[in-house]
Amino acid sequence: MNWFSNLLSSTLGRKLVMALTGLFLILFLAVHLAGNLQLLKNDEGQAFNIYAHFMTSNPLIKVISYVNYAFILLHIVWAIILTRRNRAARGPQGYAVSNNTSHWSSRNMGILGTFIALFLIIHLRGFWYEMHWGGIATANYDGVDYKNLYAVVDAAYSQWWYVTIYVVSMILLAFHLYHGFGSAFQTLGLNHVKYNPVIKFVGVAFAIIVPALFALIPIVMFLD
């Protein structure tokens, strides 16, 4: 297994882990968004609460959610290892003048990621922790009791500063995705004249539309 640990500890192997976990997280974002959009339904949160119950009780979803936790942690830990190594490669003395032509977000993935990680802590503490271990009031639909996560979300989104944190975080996520989406394909070696324009288009569209819709939910609920 020497070759395998060699692969994982190489610069290319580390990037492979970043790209694979990053793409998985992108997929997760899409599914998460589809679920969240139910918050905007005009049903006092019934659809959303039933969905949240399903997501926390279905055994298959449970397995996928553990993979998801592991991949977020992997992505973060690998990001720290990689960024530190990259910093060390530069040496102690930087340039006095620098006119870099590259895109800002491509050079600041670590900073963007750090803010996303901070957001994740607030986000998980506020909803995920409450859903799993908090004392949440229940709502009754057709004789069955469901945890009323909608009420928790609604209360959170009635505070302007909470909404602000969300919107700003989604803007940072957009920049992370703007570079990350296409970058992951290049890391995997998927660079092809036919598909490059498709990857570029889908990547930019995803980086704009998904964070925008995520941000729209707290804004709409705040204004309501």
Partner: peptide, 9 residues
């Protein structure tokens, strides 16, 4: 040497 961040610089 460092890893590639695909900045294209």
């Amino acid at each position: 040497f460092g890893a590639c961040s695909n900045t294209l610089a």
